[in-house]
């Protein structure tokens, strides 16, 4: 029922200069599911997402998205396959207005799907609708986070890599973020989420992958992870 695997990564290794950060991770993502990549600070979550997008030097024995090989593809070609990326530090274009930021992400949707438009996104993130002409540098962290997600949705992706969406933002906005992710899921967009905020990840994810020191420690349903206190405390703290 969940269809063919969307994103399939096997044995991923990544490097910063000569420092190795990932030591052979494997993970996959099915259409429309939300998977949380959890682990401590510095465990390699952000690097995993960057490596998938081709933003850090990495190797994998197998890396496909919708059946297309990702290896050696430049970042923009990976994005054009339908893989969206929302970076940890949001990377809003601060000199550009909200509407202009959305424009940078715009790409035509595949036939038969109702495309994301600024209007639809403003319904999802009402705050943004009230500040269409405002520049990125005059927005709060939470607003920038919403804009970053909205900008990526403008590309009508099949899956989004979402890096630490709840970090450093107010609890109310975290709540809105969770709703937005549920809305994306309802639209059939798969989400691979890196998260340190346990409560947030548990509330919205179908599955969890636990990363520790650049290696995968656990993959399974969120319920399994919640049940296994020893694993959780062993890898995530305490």
């Amino acid at each position: 029922m969940r269809g063919d695997v969307l994103l399939d990564i096997r044995n991923l290794r990544a490097f910063y200069g000569r420092a190795q950060v990932l030591f052979g991770l494997s993970l996959h993502l099915y259409p429309g599911e939300v998977v949380a990549l959890v682990g401590r600070n510095g465990a390699g979550k952000t690097t995993t997402l960057k490596a998938i997008m081709g933003l850090v030097s990495a190797t994998a024995t197998h890396a496909t998205f919708k059946g297309h090989s990702l290896s050696k593809l430049p970042t923009y070609r990976i994005a054009r396959l339908g893989l969206g990326y929302v970076p940890e530090d949001r990377r809003i274009f601060t000199d550009l207005t909200v509407e202009e930021n959305l424009e940078t992400g715009r790409r035509t949707a595949e036939a038969g799907r109702s495309p994301w438009t600024p209007e639809r996104l403003f319904r999802l993130f009402p705050n943004l609708g009230e500040m269409r002409g405002r520049r990125g540098n005059q927005m709060s962290g939470g607003e920038q986070q919403m804009l970053s997600i909205a900008r990526t949705l403008m590309g009508n992706p099949d899956a989004i890599l979402l890096d630490e969406p709840s970090e450093g933002i107010a609890p109310v906005i975290v709540q809105m973020m969770a709703e937005a992710i549920r809305a994306m899921k309802a639209e059939g967009v798969a989400v691979l989420l890196s998260e340190q905020n346990w409560a947030f990840a548990a509330g919205i994810s179908d599955r969890a992958c636990v990363i520790e020191r650049g290696e995968m420690r656990f993959q399974g349903s969120m319920a399994e992870l919640m049940a296994d206190k020893a694993l959780r405390e062993g890898t995530l703290g305490g």
């Binding site: 000199d95 202009e100 992400g105 790409r107």
Partner: peptide, 24 residues
Amino acid sequence: TRFGVLVRAATQDRDMVASLGVNQ
């Protein structure tokens, strides 16, 4: 224009523009 918006965006952050699927 879209071209202009992308030029300004790229002036600020080239990698992010590529992550949004723009052919640099």
